[in-house]
Design a protein around this nucleic acid. Structure first.
Length: 222
DNA sequence: GACCAGGCACATC
DNA sequence: GATGTGCATGGT
């Protein structure tokens, strides 16, 4: 399995090169992006982030002190904006209550404990929590998303029914806990997913065309 | 006009 | 525990 996962990574890297994830000038900007991008294309998130920057509000305090209606209007382009305004404020409240609003203090928490804490925040699910851990805080945690699952199941490496944690464990059990590897790997999977592994298969230019399989059944329910 | 996007919470069975 | 639905804008 280790060999297979590394083979996939190398093929993708050779085909597409570094993806330079995650765009963001500060860890907090990445965290905000992780919440805003929920079920939303990144292009629309960028507009929302630009507006927050224009208003000089892209800080923990800046968002926390904003009126909900004003915050919602600034992030409107990212869709489900009333819900996301709530989520951002719940999140900044969490940052203040738990870390005094200091990202540096947050960073000192071990990944395991931090993940559990993040999952306890309303509006933060597994993918958002892991994106924050990996892309904002540099913790070696593998991020799983819809593309990851679609690609792996389509290539017979996992079951369609495999849970989030099962897919995550597959990567983390078989690869070194390397933040930069996990960063690049997930970014490459998303890039591949957008290009060729869509819901309607059109894998004629897929760099994984002839990978060795023989690992079917991972994540199958007993 | 339908469908999708770097999900999540909640209701219901 | 699985499945369905609301959230909502902007691009294709």
């Amino acid at each position: 399995m280790r060999r297979l996962l590394i083979d996939i990574y190398e093929r993708l890297y050779r085909a597409y090169g570094p993806r330079h994830w995650w765009p963001g000038e500060t860890p907090f900007e990445v965290m905000v992006g992780a919440i805003l991008t929920q079920n939303t294309s990144w292009i629309n998130v960028e507009k929302a982030i630009r507006r927050l920057k224009e208003e000089r509000r892209l800080t923990v305090t800046g968002i926390h002190q904003l009126k909900k209606s004003k915050l919602a209007s600034l992030i409107r382009s990212s869709g489900t904006y009333r819900i996301k305004a709530d989520r951002l404020r719940v999140f900044t409240t969490f940052l203040f209550e738990t870390y005094g609003g200091k990202i540096s203090r947050m960073k000192k928490d071990p990944a395991r404990a931090l993940r559990d804490r993040l999952l306890g925040v309303k509006g933060i699910g597994p993918e958002t929590a892991d994106s924050i851990l990996l892309y904002a805080l540099g913790k070696p945690v593998f991020v799983v998303d819809a593309y990851t699952r679609r690609i792996l199941s389509r290539h017979g490496i996992i079951s369609e029914k495999a849970s989030y944690e099962e897919v995550q464990q597959l990567f983390m059990d078989h690869l070194p806990a390397d933040e930069r590897l996990f960063n690049e790997y997930h970014a490459l999977l998303v890039y591949l997913g957008k290009r060729v592994c869509q819901k309607t298969p059109k894998c004629d230019i897929c760099p994984l065309e002839s990978i060795g399989h023989g690992a079917e059944g991972i994540g199958k329910r007993a």
